[in-house]
Design a binder for these strands. Structure first.
Lengths: 215, 215
DNA sequence: ATGGAAGACAGTGTATACAGAGAAGGTGAT
DNA sequence: ATCACCTTCTCTGTATACACTGTCTTCCAT
């Protein structure tokens, strides 16, 4: 694996997992020594992170981007636009059998969550399958690219919320509803189901965020 | 100005103006010598171009991205999603007086086009003002960023179409209609006017593109 | 004549050295 | 004591040298 790739992956993980907090300055010599790569591949990694919006190159050095509550609102506003339309397009263009299968698997998600995996690996893999199926069904690389770039920030926000089993079960049911609507070819229902899901996710995130601030 | 910035700007111009055609391989040594910069800043420029989608880093070297007719359809599909919603949001959140002023200036656009500027500089500056006003009005940096990244590709496509005065006058009238709807606070009308405008633009581009292929 | 292997070459990926700019701290003068 | 200026240091931006990988060509053997 290339050194720049390693540096990029490591820094991205550190930012998403909130080990590198917003406002942290990523000095080139410091980070290159920490990650065991030279400055050149590190600069490439920082460039990619800045292009994704995880860092900003304003003035002196590269700084980890902050995510405020207003940012989360804006993030979900765009998410609703993109994913709502994507679900509608998938309902028209997608292969129903794929989404029917995903719907049934999502309805069995509570079984996955009762397992002892603290990282909920199987659960998130299943949700990623739905995302991938959406990307493939819409047959629009620009839209898919826009959604991919948003998901990076979303994962970062998600780490702020408490992933309790109750919410994840509810989210799986909402995902199943989206898959069902797509499989049925009902674009308006698919878009509506996506809107509902995103609003519930946002409410959950905000609620847990408020709790943390008051705790 | 930094060398990497110069290289980025020059390459970007060359790609947008179709001086570097799709499929061209941008070898590092070759381009660094041509642009008079070292390989290091050139690599940074290529990285930014690749992040924007103007080039791809697949396998051997960096290659200028191709734009097919299907790509244009996908591009405008996403554009309609983003700009339609942006117009609707601007109608709710924007300052009406700004868009009223832009509406009136756009209605006088035919005067600008009757001038002898072959680059239509004043005209495009006015259209850019509308884009900037939209960006500011929506108060959503993620949506604004998504639209900005699309506009790069749009400018590239626009260079394919013949910018005849008739079409530009019609486009100005359509822009004025969008501004009017935003100023009136009518979000549904603003979105509809945007949809109409984009469909007409797309039809025009496709028509001229067909002509060129048959000519 | 054809296939395979080896060497040369081209081109990227990485490291390091050097230069310039900006900030911080200290010192002198008022 | 405070302010201004100068020095110095640290950091980024750039250039260049080196290494490695993949490919193409050529030569030898069958």
């Amino acid at each position: 694996m290339r050194a720049s790739e390693r540096a990029y992956t490591a820094l991205r993980e550190d930012i998403i997992e909130w080990r590198l907090l917003p406002g942290t300055v990523l000095a080139e010599v410091e980070q290159s020594e920490r990650l065991g790569v030279s400055r050149t591949p590190l600069r490439e990694a920082l460039g990619r992170l800045t292009a994704e919006g995880l860092t900003t190159a304003g003035g002196r050095g590269v700084v980890v981007t902050d995510i405020s509550l207003e940012d989360i609102d804006e993030l979900f506003e765009l998410r609703e636009i993109l994913e709502g339309k994507a679900a509608a397009l998938a309902a028209v263009r997608g292969d129903p059998s794929i989404f029917t299968r995903l719907q049934h698997e999502l309805l069995r998600a509570p079984e996955l969550l009762s397992g002892e995996d603290p990282a909920r690996h199987d659960y998130y893999a299943l949700v990623n399958q739905l995302d991938d199926a959406l990307d493939a069904a819409i047959t629009n690389s620009y839209l898919a690219q826009a959604m991919r770039s948003l998901r990076v920030h979303l994962v970062r926000v998600r780490r702020l919320a408490s992933d309790d089993v109750a919410r994840l079960c509810a989210a799986a049911a909402e995902h199943a509803a989206i898959a069902e609507a797509i499989a049925a070819g009902n674009s308006r229902l698919a878009e509506a189901a996506t809107t509902v899901h995103l609003h519930r996710s946002l409410s959950h995130i905000k609620a847990t965020h408020r709790e943390e601030n008051h705790g």
